[in-house]
Design a binder for these strands. Structure first.
Lengths: 338, 338
DNA sequence: GTTGACTGTCGAAGCGCTTCGACGATGGAG
DNA sequence: CTCCATCGTCGAAGCGCTTCGACAGTCAAC
C-alpha cells in the first residue's frame, strides 16, 4: 500500500502538499495539483483511515443502531437502513451497524474508542435507557423516534399522532362513526415504543374531537392474533364500519378473516392502513394507506447528522407530515349502516 | 478522553506496560495488572480505534457487502445480517455495512483505506464482477454464495443443489411423478444469482435420476406472477401433483390460487417450500419445507473470516447440508392419480 | 558461584496522516 | 521603490497506540 510519502516523492512535492491537495484546505497551484493527482492515480493511493482518524479526529463513519431482531417490521427496518447507508455514502461517510441488543455498552464502545463521528439510533422506547448514555457522548446523535425526554437531542420521525388524526378524519369524512384501531402487538406497547404510543394518543384525541365511537386493540402476531383482535372489536364495538390498521403483519390475516366471514372491503367495512406503500398495494384489495416514509426519514436523519457535524444549526424535532393515499379500501358509509 | 499515557501515569507504569496488560502479549505481574486495570476503569479509558489500527494494522472491523434493495427476500437478508453482526461481536469485531450498489469501488475503498480486516460478500452472481476485485485485495474475504470461479476464495452457503434433490426425493418417495418447480423471479435468473442456478441444476439432475416428469418455471413477483406461473405449469405439465416452491414471495399467492381453484393442499397437490422456517409455518397450511439456514450460514461465514485472519486453515467451500422438515403440505399420492 | 533462561518492565521508534508556523516569491498599493 | 498581503510550498510536531530491543532482577541447574 503506497503512503502519502510515496505519492509526495512521485510528484516531487512534500507530504503536506499532497495532504492539502486532498483536503483543499490550502491553495495549491493547478500544475502541482495535477502532478499530485496523477501520482495518486498511478500509485492507487488511498489514505489510511486509521491514520487519518488519528490525525484529524474524524472517522467519516456513522453508527446505525438498529434492532436486528427478526420479527415484525423487517422490511421497514431495512428501508431505514438502506436510506441511511445511501445518504451517508452521498456525504462520503460509511455506516457501522450495531444491534440494539448491545444496549448502552455498544454505544459507548464505538463512541469512546472514536470509531464513529456520530450515531443514528432507531427503535426508541419512551424512556429509553440509551438516552442518558447518548447525552454523555461527545459525538452527536440523531434518533429516529420521539422518546419522552428528548430535550437537546435531535429526533426525526413520521408524525404518528398526525397520522392517526389523518386516518380518522378521512374515515369520518366518509361518514364512519364506529371505528376500530388494530394496533401493534402488545409487546410493542409494553416496550413503549414511541411510534405506537404517539399513534394511539393521536387516535384517542382525534376520536374525541371528531366525536367518534372508537376502540383500540393491540394485535398479537399471526392469524390467531388477528382473529382474536377482530372478535374483540366486534364484541366491544358492535357495528364497527371501519378499521385503522397500524400493524403491517396483521393486515393480511385480517383481510382474510373479513373475507372468510363474508364482509367485503370496502363495501361492508372500510380499512385504512399505516404501512409502507408497497405493502398496501400488495394486498388483494389495494389499501388506502398512510405511508411510512422510511426513505425520507432515514435520509433526513443523515442530513441532520451532517449539519450537526458541520456545526450548523438543526431543528431538534422534525416530524414529517403524514400523507394519505386513497386506494380501494374505503367507501362512504351507506345509509343503512347509520 | 483519557489516553494510554493517562492510564500509565495513574497506575505508575509506562504506556507499553498498559498496552501489554490490554493485549496480554507479554507477562505482567498480577499486582501491576490489577493497578492498571483499576486505572483503566477509573478513567473510563477506551483505546482509540484509529491509533490502534495505525499501529497494529488491525481494525477489528469486517465489511458486510449486502444487497440492500427492498425487494424479495428482505427477511432472509436480515437474518444473514443479524447472524453476521452477532457472530462478529462475539469475536470482538464490528461490522461496516456496504451496499452491493457500490460494486467494486466500494470494496476497494474500504479495503485500500484499511477500514476493515476482512469482507463478507453476499448475493453473488455466477460471474460476479466483484470476484476479481476481491482476489486483488490484501484482506481476506468470505462469500455467501458459490460463483463460478471461486478457486482460492472461501465460499459458504446452503447446498442448494442438494436441497433440490432432497425435495424431489421426498416427493418421489411419496409417489409423485409429475412435479413443477416454481422458481425465483426471472430477474434473479437473469442476474445468474448463484443459488437459483444451483437449485435448478440440482432439480434437473435429480429429475433425470429419479425418472420424473418435471418442469421448472420462474415466477414473477406478485399475485399476477403466481397466477401466470401456475397456469403455465398446468398447461405444460398436465396432471401435476406436486410443487417445489423456491420463491418465498410466491408462496402465499400460490396457496391462495390453489385454494380458489378448489385444489386442496395436500389432498390434491403436495407442496415443498424452500424458505425460512418461520415463513413455512406462517402459511395457512404448515408447509413441509427445506430451511434456509441464514443464521448458520452467517455465523459460519464469520468463523471462516476469523480463521483466515488467524492464519488458520479453512475449507474453501462449505456447503451446508439441507434439511427437510415434514409438516402438513405433502401427502402420498392416491392411486387414482397414477 | 557462575551461567543461562525467564520474568517483568521500560524507552523509543514508528505507524501514516493533518495541521501549524514559517518562508520565499509575487504583485498591487502607496 | 518600498511595504505588506497573499499565494504556494515545506518541515516538523504530534495524534495515541503497538512492538521491539534492552535490561535489571530472580531462580534453578551445574
Amino acid at each position: 500500500m503506497p503512503t502519502i510519502n510515496d505519492v509526495a516523492r512521485a510528484a516531487g512535492v512534500s507530504a503536506s502538499t499532497v495532504s492539502y491537495v486532498l483536503s483543499g484546505r490550502r491553495p495549491i497551484s493547478a500544475e502541482t495539483r495535477a502532478r499530485v493527482q496523477a501520482a495518486i492515480a498511478e500509485l492507487g493511493f488511498h489514505p489510511h483511515a486509521g491514520a487519518r482518524a488519528l490525525a484529524s479526529s474524524k472517522t467519516n463513519v456513522i453508527a446505525l443502531v438498529a434492532p436486528l431482531r427478526v420479527d415484525v417490521n423487517v422490511p421497514v427496518i431495512m428501508q431505514f437502513a438502506t436510506a441511511v447507508v445511501t445518504a451517508a455514502r452521498a456525504h462520503n461517510h460509511d455506516v457501522l451497524l450495531l444491534t440494539k441488543d448491545e444496549g448502552t455498552a455498544g454505544l459507548e464502545r464505538v463512541a469512546h474508542s472514536t470509531m464513529v463521528d456520530a450515531l443514528i439510533v432507531m427503535d426508541l422506547e419512551r424512556d429509553d435507557v440509551r438516552i442518558p448514555a447518548l447525552r454523555r457522548l461527545k459525538q452527536p446523535s440523531v434518533m429516529i423516534g420521539l422518546p419522552a425526554d428528548h430535550a437537546g437531542l435531535a429526533c426525526v420521525d413520521l408524525d404518528f399522532g398526525a397520522a392517526a388524526k389523518l386516518a380518522l378524519t378521512h374515515l369520518a369524512g366518509l361518514g364512519h362513526e364506529r371505528i376500530g384501531l388494530v394496533g401493534p402487538s402488545p409487546a410493542v406497547y409494553r416496550r413503549q415504543t414511541t411510534y405506537a404510543d404517539r399513534f394511539l394518543t393521536g387516535f384517542l384525541e382525534a376520536s374525541a374531537e371528531l366525536n367518534l365511537r372508537t376502540l383500540s386493540h393491540p394485535c398479537e402476531p399471526g392469524a390467531a392474533g388477528a382473529r382474536e383482535c377482530l372478535a374483540d372489536l366486534d364484541t366491544d364495538l358492535p357495528g364497527v364500519t371501519a378499521l385503522v390498521v397500524h400493524n403491517e403483519e396483521a393486515l393480511r390475516p385480517l383481510l382474510d378473516l373479513l373475507q372468510a366471514s363474508g364482509r367485503r372491503v370496502p363495501e361492508d367495512i372500510s380499512v385504512v392502513a399505516v404501512c409502507p406503500r408497497d405493502v398496501a398495494t400488495a394486498m388483494p384489495v389495494k389499501l388506502t394507506s398512510i405511508d411510512i416514509p422510511a426513505h425520507d426519514v432515514g435520509t433526513l436523519a443523515v442530513e441532520t447528522v451532517m449539519r450537526l457535524l458541520d456545526g450548523r444549526r438543526v431543528e431538534y424535532t422534525r416530524l414529517l407530515a403524514p400523507e394519505l393515499v386513497e386506494r380501494d379500501s374505503c367507501r362512504e358509509i351507506s345509509p343503512t349502516h347509520r
